[in-house]
Amino acid sequence: MEDFEYLKPTTTAEAVNMLAQHSGEARAIAGGQSLIPMLRARLVGPAYLIGLEAIPDLARIQAVDGSLRIGAMATHLEVATSALVRQRASILAEAEGLVGSPAVRNLGTLGGNLCHNEVGADPPPPLLALGATAVIAGPGGDRKLPLEQFFTGFLETALAEDEILAYVDIPAQPPGLASAYVKYRLRAVDRSIVGVAVALAIEGGVCREAKVALGGVGPVPFRSRGAEAVLSGNHPDERTIEQAAGAAMAEARPMSDAHASADYRRKMVAVFTRRALKHALGMG
């Protein structure tokens, strides 16, 4: 590991100033569960690490103007067990309870996870299915970005060098939301081979609006607009679900790695999209 200096700001503004002052040589560190292994592997070697653990505002989980606001420094454990999150964004709580192992969930944070944008991360699919927004702090103040646009490429995000992810906002969900997150992996501690989150607004047996989000099967997590179009305005029966699963599979752009081949992942998209939809709709 390269040497670095460790700075510990106590406000978000101070952290942003430090990043700007050492632009190009500094990295923010949250729980360190992704970054420390990367530092040790010398994949990154910043001269300054900006530790965000002493900024209380970034660790809060709160209701703000009808939205649920989760601070980027809230740990996976805190998000998974928060009564507010379980009540308003249950599929996010479920997904957070499946990240890594207990030790990773104890220190790792929601924000750190999103900022690394690792393929197969658990939180992005439920957040995309719930229509979440990233609140990004920078030198000019905060800016908001639909979370879908936050993930820009393999391990890349829309964050500039002098910006930090401050919060994730989740809007109020329609009543009668049918939602589910399913994760396929071989070992409990692994990231997903395929992760599927679905959120369906059902009215009178018809799916008024559908969001279907996939992780692990492309360079970035994404919403399957094809699957959503199949479901929207239709009665979600077996045939519609089958078509939606096929549409999701057609949109997947998976890579091969040690855990699964691209072909296998693509096939599993159909299987797990079907399961997620059936689970959300109480069809077994």
Binding site: Y6, G32, Q33, I36, P37, G51, E53, L77, P102, A103, V104, N106, L107
Partner: peptide
């Protein structure tokens, strides 16, 4: 490398001493 930090299990290989 598991140790407890404030009673919670953590991987001490993934925690800086300063933290």
């Amino acid at each position: 490398c598991t140790v407890l930090l404030d009673g919670k299990a953590v991987h001490s290989c993934s925690v800086l001493a300063v933290r």
